[in-house]
Structures are given as C-alpha cells and as structure tokens.
Design a protein around this nucleic acid. Structure first.
Lengths: 229, 229
DNA sequence: GCATGCATCTATGTATACATCATGAGGCTA
DNA sequence: TAGCCTCATGATGTATACATAGATGCATGC
C-alpha cells in the first residue's frame, strides 16, 4: 500500500521489499552490506572461491556478484589477480558528498517555486527525521535514516536518472555515513538538528539558505574519521 | 604523450586507447556500439547464445557482456525471459540531458572565478570544436565530437565520480546524440555555432549566460526526432 | 650473499553441461 | 467452440571442468 519505507532508501540494493532475483544478486547484496558495515575491512582481498564457498554456491554467481560490487565501487578487480575491498579516500569522500549536495540543491531549486511540492517534500523529510530521532541509540540504523534523509531530497523529483546514480553511489555513501556516525557518537543530535534546519529551508523554498547549510553539514559530519589520501 | 584524443571521450567504453581486457569486455563494447549507432534497433531481442555465436565464443562472456550492457542502460534484462534493446523515451532524453546540463553548469560555475582554469577549459573546447567542424560531412563522427564537447566541460574538474557517471550514461547520451544529428542533417552548422557560443560564455566566466544558452541548445538539438513516450 | 631463472601454485577467464522456469502449441473436455 | 491442461521448446541460471596468466618460493650460478 504505502511504500514509505522503500522510498527513502532508494539507491540501496539491499533492504528493499523486492527479494533477490538470483543467487548472484543475493551474494552481491550480502557482501555489499558486510563491506558497508565495515565487517570486511578496506583493502581486504576477496576471492570468488571464498565468496562462493561461504554461501555454499558455485563460482559462477560469485563472479557475477564481484562484478556488481565493482560497479558499486566497493571492490576493485585486477584482471587475473583478484579483487580487493576499495579503500575510501579523502578524494572519494569529497567528490561523492559534492555530487550529492549538487543533486539535492538542484532538486530544492526545482521545487522552490511550487509551494505544494515544497510542502510535500518537507513533510516527507520530517517523517524521515522522526525515524532518525528514534534511532539515536542504534548507530547503524541512525546512519541508514541519515542516508534516507538525503536520498529523499535527491529523489523527490522522481528522476530515474537520479535513481540510477543513487544505485551506483548509494552503497559508498552509506559506507561513508556509517563511518561518520561511528566517529561522532556524541554528536548525533547535531546531525538531527542540522537536518531539521535543512527541512525548514526546503519548506521555505530558500535555496540560498539550503546551499549555505548543506556544505557545513557535510563538512562537520564527515570530519571526524580518517580515510586514505 | 598528450592524450588529447582520449580525454574528451571520457565515459565511452569503446574508442579508447586501452584495449579490451577480456572477451566479455570486447563483446560488450561491440554490441554497445551497434546499439548506439542504431544498427540494432530499439526493442530488438538479444539472446546470450546469439551474441556468443556471432563472435565465436561461449555463453559465459556473452552473459557478462549482457550484464554490462544493462548497466549502461542499453538493454533491459528480464529474469529467466531474456534481454531486449532499450527504447529511448522522451523521459529518458529529458532526464539525461538535464543531468548533463547540471553537471556542466556546475563545472562552469566552479571555474568561473579562476581565469586560468577558464582559459584552459575554453582552449580545450575550441580544440574539440575545430575537430567537430572537420566532421560536418560525417554524421557519426560529428556526433562523437558533439558528445566530446559536452564531456570536456563535465569532466574538466577531473572528478572521478563524474567520470563514473559518464561511464554509466555516456553510451545512452551518444545514442541520443546520434539520433539528433541524423535528424538534423541540414542544421549541423547550428550545433557548431551554439557550441562556439557556449565556449565563449565559459571563457568569459559568465555562468548566467552559459545557463541561458545550454537549455535551448539541448531543446533545439533534440527536438527533431521521435522517441517513445 | 645476491640476482636470476624455473617450477609450482593460486586465482581468474572461458567453455561446456545440467537445472529451472517462462512460453506457446496442441489436444482434450465440457 | 471456449477454456484448460499437458507437454515440448527455448532461454536463462547455475555448476563444473579446463585454460591461462600472475605470484611465490626455491634452487642454481655468479
């Protein structure tokens, strides 16, 4: 009926109502989650045989899963050598957050002249915000709602192209968000407050204020953890 | 030494110096080119066995190639049913062109305050423009240089995230550009003129003018051919 | 002691065989 | 004749076997 739970999570291959369509799909989602949660550390080597054996299947779907993971930027495949979990770099963090900010600002600008659309988006953001407040005690769940907040803005226009972008960059953004949340245990309330301010700017249709808020929000949230150069 | 020919074509899997790393890669590029050039018409059914047989290889790399083609949005795979060449829709056209305009505008805004960067970008654009003028008689080559012009703007910042986006959307953008050029045989000089105007706006660092020029450029160029709803 | 070349090993890349599911033709029944 | 059931067919999804290229370690020669 109402798909309020799948909506905000646009871009994430897992945690969707639709069940995996194949073993390869299931493997890719499972490994992606482990990488994003940090259970598989950056730089770790993955072999098709290991992944296959760990799930009791053959190498064929495992190989497909590796290709999918490469598409999500979570592993790097060196031909004839092997695959390794990618290491988040300062550059990747900057570029991905910039890109997301650009997409969000673009959407806010698009709805700025339409009071009804602004209200609809703001309403949706407050829903996500409420869920985020409930998860202050669960870092992983909190990070998920944090991602959902930004995804809700990006995806509000319903563009399938944006949805595709989220499908490509979503997993890496969640990984970064998990890192940010894990290193800011005591400042999660700040994240919520900043989100609330962003929602207000959206509701007011104040693009300039939104732009002024979004960059510091990214900068402050993603400053407390170390990544490779 | 100077990679002036690979640079502007960022985002396209084929026509790169780097040769294919596997049979699967070679198949994906070959089929992608046939789709983009219109040799494989929209809606056509593709089977792994056909693709494999056409190139004298087994189904395994053919299957990988199909997955890659799906990632590029050139084919749509229905589980257990088959794959078909995607049909360009008015919505896809609008969304892809909007996205590219956004990325270009973002880059122009980024270099607006840096005279040296503006000059460098403008210089590069004029290089591509010169090549485009030489190809007025060859629609396919002209379309390639048209894409290269926009790619040069998008990618000027050197963002790998943008590069990834181009890698995903590039093939579909080239397909649209081919359609636009094919249906505007007598108006190609107009395209060149509009590109020249865009290059001037870039050199002047005039973001407002660039924004005012880019949307009509997209609209006029991509009006003359029909796509599905 | 150190560099070089070879053997071996591991993991990927590809080929082939089998399993599963969607589709459609054909016949049966009411 | 309309509707449904069955089965043949063809395609994908998966498993397994073989081919090939990097990597590692050791022996050999200097």
């Amino acid at each position: 009926m109402h798909q309020e739970d799948t909506g905000p999570l646009i871009g994430l291959p897992w945690s969707g109502e639709e069940r995996p369509r194949s073993i390869a799909d299931r493997l890719a989602r499972a490994v992606a989650q482990r990488i994003v949660r940090g259970e598989l550390e950056a730089g770790a080597l993955l072999t098709e045989a290991e992944v296959a054996a760990a799930h009791g299947v053959s190498r064929t779907p495992a190989r497909e899963a590796m290709l999918q993971l490469e598409g999500w930027g979570l592993v790097s495949i060196a031909p004839k050598k092997g695959a390794s979990v990618t290491v988040p770099t300062a550059r990747e963090r900057r570029e991905l957050l910039d890109l997301r900010s650009m997409l969000e600002t673009h959407e806010v600008r698009r709805v700025a002249d339409d009071a009804a659309a602004r209200a609809a988006l703001a309403c949706r953001l407050r829903e996500v915000l409420a869920r985020q407040r409930e998860e202050l005690g669960d870092p992983a769940a909190f990070a998920m709602q944090d991602y959902a907040f930004h995804a809700a803005i990006m995806h509000h226009g319903g563009s399938r192209a944006v949805e595709e972008i989220a499908g490509v960059f979503g997993p890496r953004l969640v990984r970064l968000t998990n890192l940010a949340v894990a290193s800011s245990a005591g400042r999660l309330q700040t994240f919520v407050d900043e989100h609330a301010a962003l929602a207000e700017a959206v509701e007011a249709g104040d693009v300039v204020r939104f732009e002024a808020l979004i960059d510091p929000h990214m900068a402050s949230g993603h400053r407390g953890y170390e990544v490779a150069q």
